[in-house]
Write a protein that binds this DNA or RNA. Structure first.
Length: 278
DNA sequence: CAATGAACCTGGTTGC
DNA sequence: TGCAACCAGGTTCATT
């Protein structure tokens, strides 16, 4: 999916929908990770959203005069669109139409996404949210925190970065990109990294996420910004998806290198063995 | 617990 | 052209 930068962009785009009266709600039949809540329609009509915010890779919709919130996640292939179109296309699962004709549409071909209701009073205790680690862009995500979390872990650092209970928001693209920038091998044992490595890694993660947010995220295939346009950060990858190419640093130094692709825990990892030594 | 791999789904690409 | 195999921004669950 949608990793942190893509979800952040969805969230920004959806701010336009705040405080607009909801006229109608379309709910498709097929389930996402969980069945779509059928009480959604009755709950939303004639009210409005007063806050939509990002929590890790989740979006939380706060509803006026309602004791429920919506917890949404875009899975691998989900997108939120905000427009004034009337069309319903394949894989549209939720369409929330406002009085002024605009609408929020959630489309998700693979249906790994999530769209559920939870009690507003204690939604953070929800089973999907209560184990999430600190947000990658928060001040709490720092060298000291990461050192504590990785201590004694034997898994490789790349896999550790995908664990949302350690740090929330990093996904498969930005894990490879950040490790490259920090000059850390994805194969290194998470618990073996020294303080300098960890400091570089924290900085690299925050930098790559910030840069991607500015460029509207990365569009590989399904992800689109809420206006339907592609993100641009995919044009700035150093290693992701670049198997057998030369990495940027080796190109500058005119050194021979080939970016390596491997599988770690079932996910593709890309790295330069010249730059990223164990 | 920590670490692995399978499962959940659809659709695009690759290779025979 | 057809069809099977493999691959994809994520996460949970069952099994070691």
């Amino acid at each position: 999916m949608p990793e942190l930068p893509e979800v952040e962009n969805m969230c920004c785009g959806l701010q336009q929908a705040l405080h607009k009266d909801i006229k109608s709600v379309y709910i498709a039949d097929k389930s996402l990770r969980e069945p779509l809540p059928k009480e959604l329609e009755q709950l939303l009509i004639n009210t409005r959203f007063y806050q939509i915010k990002r929590l890790a890779k989740y979006l939380i919709f706060h509803i006026s005069n309602c004791n429920k919130v919506i917890i949404a996640h875009a899975g691998m292939s989900g997108r939120f669109i905000y427009d004034n179109n009337k069309d319903i296309i394949k894989h549209d699962h939720i369409i929330i139409t406002f009085q002024d004709g605009h609408r929020i549409k959630y489309n998700d071909p693979r249906r790994f996404g999530l769209f559920i209701l939870e009690d507003a009073a204690n939604y953070l205790q929800n089973k999907y949210l209560n184990k999430i680690g600190v947000d990658a862009l928060s001040a709490e995500f720092n060298t000291t925190y990461l050192e504590l979390k990785l201590k004694n872990l034997k898994i490789n650092i790349k896999t550790a970065l995908l664990n949302q209970t350690i740090v929330a928001g990093v996904g498969n693209i930005y894990a490879s990109e950040a490790l490259y920038t920090a000059k850390i091998s994805p194969l290194a044992a998470a618990g073996s990294l020294n303080k300098i490595d960890l400091e570089n890694l924290v900085i690299a993660i925050k930098n790559v996420l910030h840069k991607s947010i500015k460029l509207g995220g990365s569009t590989l295939k399904d992800y689109k910004k809420t206006d339907g346009e592609k993100g641009q950060f995919q044009d700035h990858f150093s290693v992701y998806g670049k198997e057998n190419a030369s990495c940027p640093a080796c190109l500058v130094n005119k050194e021979d290198c080939k970016i390596i692709k491997l599988k770690q825990n079932g996910r593709s990892t890309f790295y330069c063995s010249n730059i990223q030594n164990l």
